[in-house]
Design a binder for these strands. Structure first.
Lengths: 314, 314
DNA sequence: GCTCTTATGCTCTTTATGAGTATAATAGGA
DNA sequence: TCCTATTATACTCATAAAGAGCATAAGAGC
């Protein structure tokens, strides 16, 4: 039955496991990094590992001391020239997305919780579209579009840039984080795109990362932004008790766009995701707020239900 | 910068590429199989392959003669005991979902288009819930639930079965194909679940497959059923021209549940996914129908928009 | 008591969606 | 030819969900 093995040749390849571990640190959606915010925790999949997940768990705990909670598989990459800076031999990266809470403050600089908007400043629309979108990205991409050979090429490039970045009055779609990064990569506007060249700062604002780690981070953000809309995953990022505004801020931090407060609570409450703890908190800055917790039952029902979240239209 | 490689040990593992290629064959959602409908096309990822996708493409074309169209990555599996029947050494399977049209009729028996409901008879609710759900699955799962050790275990098992299969008046959710298969696996009701034992027919109706290929197929079905609701992927499965009823039948075939005809067309038309070709067809059996094609623009906009599809409530 | 700030309740409008009624246009047989 | 079965297509109705905004409540600080 098994005909594809043992053809004599050695087909085995190197497999890396990479973790995008997300937590909210002081309101900022953050990712756990090592090496001066340049790398995601990672390590090779070894023969001793019981499973992909347990292998990843081992590496992350060894490199960062942080335990892994909820994780889900993200994507498996194997682009020859995108992957490795020394890129000669064959390798595969299996990436995972993890959600936790950052217990201690990021004191030491090595395992460090870095805000993901440091790497993607154009993704944060919580207080409106960032200035650099119109001031830097739009002209740069326009220039790139113009540099296409033929007329259709130019039109097609600009069309793509506009729809993905929301230029020309098109709506911003926060889920397209990966497509935006890929477009910038294609336009050689991110430092990772020119191989072997001076690896200092990119052409655009925004921190760069080792190899394709920034692409993996973009994949994680996109996934999380999609998922948060139909599955109650914010859970994993919240403390045991919270106010509805705190919950809203968490969702806004992830999606990168503002939510309508009253509608947000209507939605959350109508879905019976949370229940009152009975306690109140008064460090709100205004009227004290009720504290909520997630309903225990949710954890089992989780697969079955959806969560939608209300955002402001424009 | 690169610290995780070359530690002296050889960490390399065997990587298989597996394709779930889907097409509609005479109204049946079908998957391309080899080896007497027991296997999905697959082969090792080799050093010569330019990318995962091109490697997969090579294997599928070699084994089935079928070209690969639209594909997307599904999942990467590496469960030691689930994966290989001879399971001693380490291996990883990277699976892809592909959508095409089956040009020629499935004449030869080896590369064969097999209806996916042959493997998962309980998944086809187009004409109501299949009888075997109540007659076979429900009692079997009840028995499994009862065989748990303690009271909570029994309650929890039945609770899970009921919500995933829609027993006790709970709604059927067509997207839970994978969870259903996993539950049956856990309950040892599918033949793949007892290792090395008589590999004849499973305890339940439904064809079995080699190793974990049926699980991969379940993953593909679940993915497609989810995706079809927010991305216009039916495209890839349709001929260049079609009537709205044909389109509806395609969607129903994939989702496994009936749609409301008038609402279906309202939705499709309101989304401007299609345009009239001007031609009509009269092999409808009744009043002739307008022929439609997908709007060309859609192919570029594809990433950006959603498609929703209306189903009957109960 | 006044002001600022956040919490919370409620209304209004628009849109989406599930469901059903009615009519049109063909084929085929009585 | 007329009747019937079958599918296509147009509308209407009711309800639910979603976006927006108004109004009031309840604290802190001055």
């Amino acid at each position: 039955m098994d005909m594809n093995r043992n053809t004599g040749k050695n087909h085995d390849v190197h497999v890396d496991l990479i973790a995008v571990l997300v937590a909210l640190v002081g309101g900022a959606p953050s990712v756990l990094t090592i090496r001066n915010e340049q790398m995601l925790p990672s390590g090779p999949f070894e023969v001793g590992h019981r499973s992909l997940q347990s292998g990843l768990r081992a590496w992350v705990e060894q490199q960062t001391g942080h335990p892994l909670g909820y994780i889900e598989q993200l994507y498996t990459f194997a682009d020859r020239d995108r992957m490795r800076s020394d890129g000669n031999d064959r390798a595969i990266s299996i990436s995972y997305l993890g959600l936790t809470q950052a217990e201690q403050e990021p004191a030491a600089s090595d395992p460090h919780w870095a805000s993901w908007y440091g790497y993607f400043p154009w993704e944060d629309h919580r207080t409106g579209a960032p200035a650099l979108l119109a001031e830097i990205l739009e002209p740069s991409l326009k220039h790139w579009a113009e540099s296409a050979e033929d007329r259709e090429g130019r039109a097609e490039r600009w069309q793509r840039a506009a729809s993905v970045f929301g230029f020309d009055g098109q709506p911003w779609n926060e889920e397209l984080t990966l497509q935006r990064y890929e477009l910038l990569y294609e336009a050689k506007l991110v430092a990772e795109a020119d191989h072997g060249n001076a690896k200092g700062e990119g052409t655009l604002p925004g921190l760069t990362m080792y190899a394709d780690h920034r692409r993996i981070l973009a994949t994680a953000i996109a996934r999380l932004r999609t998922k948060i809309k139909y599955r109650p995953v914010v859970f994993e990022l919240m403390p045991p008790q919270f106010t509805l505004l705190q919950l809203q801020r968490a969702v806004e931090a992830l999606s990168g766009r503002p939510a309508h407060k009253q509608n947000f609570r209507r939605l959350i409450e109508s879905q019976e995701l949370v229940e009152e703890t009975g306690a109140m908190t008064s460090d709100t800055g205004g009227r004290p707020a009720k504290l909520f917790r997630f309903r225990a039952a949710i954890h089992t029902e989780r697969t079955l239900m959806g969560t939608r979240l209300p955002v402001t239209r424009s």
